[in-house]
Amino acid sequence: MEQEIIIQIKDANSFYGAKQILKNVTLNIPAQTVTALMGPSGCGKSTLIRCLNRMNDLVPRFRFEGNVLYKGIDLYGKDVDITDLRREIGMVFQKPNPFPKSIYENVAYGIRIQGIANREFIDGIVEESLKRAALWDEVKDRLHESALSLSGGQQQRICIARALAVKPHVILFDEPCSALDPIATAKIEELITDLKNNYTIIVVTHNTAQAARVSDFTAFLYLGDLIEYGPTAKIFTVPQDKRTEEYLTGKFG
């Protein structure tokens, strides 16, 4: 099957100070699929996914070499406005981080900062985004309560709704379930599977079963090297590299 490539990572090397984290990572992400990034703790999964929306720019002493092409545009190019591109490449973080504002204002935030103030338009987007994030029914009667009053799983779905509201094409998830209980986790997984029809999804996960359940493609990182990449079914059944196999069978974690 011929698939459109939406993100190309080329020879990515990254450093915190003098310490090299990513080593020559090259990876193509097909559009409208779920790609899982797996690997042992500290291997650089977060670092890699945060290169895709340049979140690492906020970290002092971080340095990146290489290219990340999004629809052919180099995100690390000289005259790229990353602020605009971040609207197309949304992100959901490991720890739910709703703003200390109302549920409504959390979801509306991304549109408001674009200078849009049309009440009806914003109402529409808030409703649509909350529905997509499978949260509408639970919160529709309390939109103006603080988002901090919600449960962890609901907070994470607020964060997903908030990301959806600005109409991204790609959504990055960095271990979105690691702070959640199994029921909330199942909901988020279901949501990720639903979303892939309209969005390209990249999800970092520690949980091999989760990767198997939600993803179409899997990339296995080990100590900053991309060891293996391919369709999830293939990686899980016939891993090419011994380290992948050992990781999947739980020999190290």
Binding site: R87, M91, F99, P100
Partner: peptide, 10 residues
């Protein structure tokens, strides 16, 4: 995390 969340929305 709040700042990151806001930056991630553009």
């Amino acid at each position: 995390g709040l700042r990151e969340g806001a930056y991630a929305l553009g």
